[in-house]
Write a protein that binds this DNA or RNA. Structure first.
Lengths: 208, 208
DNA sequence: CCTTTTTGTTGTCGAACGACCAACAAATCG
DNA sequence: CGATTTGTTGGTCGTTCGACAACAAAAAGG
């Protein structure tokens, strides 16, 4: 199957990265195909040939986003030994990502298309599904903590605790969007972790 | 002063309320003037004559929003006797507002225009300013708690605590947008209030 | 070497929609 | 009636996404 015919003159991965940057900056509806074609250095016809529709392109962009900016928080959840450390590191990794000097100060997943025209309903629900996955991922980590033994069955339900920290993550994105710096986010995270001991009734740890 | 000329055939207040409903549902950029004219029952030229530009209309809509949906949380902050009760009641009032069956399940202030095309920068910053006011309002309430005497100078700074609860409020809006119901938001609020005693080092209260 | 096949590029087109406004019709006042 | 204010009609002018034709370029196969 090889490479019959004229080879591509642009790198799809690079073009996708450039599309990501633009979508990140302006959101889904705020980005036009002309903008994209210009940023990607190719004609709009080439976009359609290589990536499909605008929505298809956006979904591929979000997949790339998930494996790049989305990875550090997920890795924190995965690799930290204790559940408490995992949640704390996840929050800090999130804060790191949304205050990087070279990218917009917010999470694309949360703010690229929270609301909009009726014809883009599918895109909004696509992102909402990804956000609901955040809650599930956090909840799974809490459940692992119980099987690991470092978390005893807490008074508050796992679902509530997971939703609480998901809420904090999403709120942090708004804070960063509105200009809060890394240190201010850190202070918020410290406050959020202050609830941990009460929620899990594990008096051994102390808030620093 | 006098009603010279042809009288209006529509009620500006009613029309503004209808514009609010549409902006609430679709966000700023997702709402077109044609949509607005249809929902308000008047021609787009009448909108310009009565309200000015689309942006002017939106600002007036947000003022109405602030005095209606925005009032219960603010009143909670104002009228509750203790600082803790004020914060708690403010969170619950927020949850009430963003899960009402007859309105979209999110706060307009937060999700109507978090991101978008470059030409709407002014609208985004207008909303960002209103959001930053939330932080200030909460912080002022905490400061009042200290002068009232029901709050002793806490270990965490007032600024951090205020930003923390602002973050929770804003996160709740995303949660509601993604389908969380009133009970689930209540559980999140309970978790968020679990941090209170640690943050203020006032061991008299207990999380219920 | 030439044909076939595949792909990219350029340019454009089209139907729809965006915000906005000028000109005119209508209605109520003094 | 004339003055004044409002509503409506219809349009401007730019942009939107999406599609297509026509052509250029490059690789594979014979």
């Amino acid at each position: 199957m090889a490479t019959r015919g004229r080879p591509r003159t642009f790198d799809p991965d690079t073009a996708l990265r450039q599309a990501l940057d633009l979508f990140w900056e302006r959101g889904y509806e705020g980005t036009s195909l002309n903008d994209l074609a210009q940023a990607m250095g190719i004609a709009s016809a080439s976009i359609y040939a290589c990536f499909g529709s605008k929505e298809d392109l956006f979904r591929k962009v979000m997949a790339l986003y998930g494996t790049t900016s989305g990875e550090p928080p997920r890795r924190a959840l995965r690799e930290q030994p204790t559940t408490r450390a995992a949640i704390h590191a996840m929050l800090r990794a999130t804060a790191d990502e949304i205050t990087r000097p070279d990218t917009p100060h917010y999470c694309m997943l949360i703010l690229a298309a929270p609301t909009g025209a009726v014809e883009n309903h599918a895109v909004r629900e696509f992102l909402a599904d990804l956000r609901r996955d955040m809650h599930t991922t956090i909840k799974d980590r809490l459940a692992r903590g119980i099987t690991d033994g470092d978390l005893t069955a807490p008074p508050a339900s796992l679902d509530a605790i997971a939703r609480y920290y998901t809420t904090v993550v999403q709120g942090l994105s708004i804070q960063a969007r509105d200009g809060a710096d890394r240190a201010e986010l850190e202070a918020v995270i410290t406050c959020a972790m202050a609830a941990w001991d009460t929620l899990t009734s594990a008096p051994s740890h102390q808030v620093n």
